[in-house]
């Protein structure tokens, strides 16, 4: 069982590239969390633990090249190692979809990254789909529908 509170993708330059909130929080609270987590996570060294206590909850993060994937989790419900696997599965899926994903791919195709994430995690932060193949199939179907829609628009 997972109940992720939020998923953030922060670059080494401190820029937030993706953010998905699975709990309702006021905007100023979200900004505060992002600001604090950015400085905490970016300053952590390679051999430090990937799990950090943060306020009333825990944060699990993993660095892939110049991108930090950060998840806020519910302490009583979530498993930290499972959260690391969720992050890894998200990265693997994006990697297959984009073909060696990089920061620029995410900046210019952020909606695709959100589509993949939405397929993996439900709106309450629980895991909806763990199969990479299934997720890619869904995203591919959405892409085909989108292209069909473009064609219909041109033909109409």
């Amino acid at each position: 069982m997972t109940q992720i509170k939020y998923m953030l993708l922060i670059s080494r330059q401190g820029k937030v590239r993706l953010q998905k909130w699975y709990v309702s929080l006021p905007n100023n609270e979200k900004t505060k969390i992002i600001r604090n987590l950015t400085s905490i996570v970016l300053s952590r060294k390679a051999k430090m633990c990937n799990i950090v206590e943060f306020g009333d909850h825990k944060v699990v993060y993993k660095r892939y090249a110049s991108l930090y994937f950060v998840c806020g989790i519910t302490q009583e419900v979530d498993n930290e190692l499972l959260t690391l696997e969720v992050i890894h599965r998200f990265v693997e899926t994006m990697d297959t979809y984009f073909g060696n994903v990089c920061e620029l791919d995410i900046i210019f195709n952020f909606e695709k990254a959100y589509n993949i994430l939405d397929d993996m995690l439900m709106c309450d932060g629980s895991l909806a789909e763990s199969s990479k193949k299934e997720i890619l199939n869904h995203v591919k179907t959405m892409d085909t529908m989108e292209h069909n829609d473009h064609l219909d628009r041109v033909l109409s």
Partner: peptide
């Protein structure tokens, strides 16, 4: 680069 002292400007989103 990981060192906190190098992240002096993280508040402004710049380092």
């Amino acid at each position: 680069n990981d060192d906190n002292s190098m992240q002096l400007t993280s508040d402004s989103g710049n380092s």
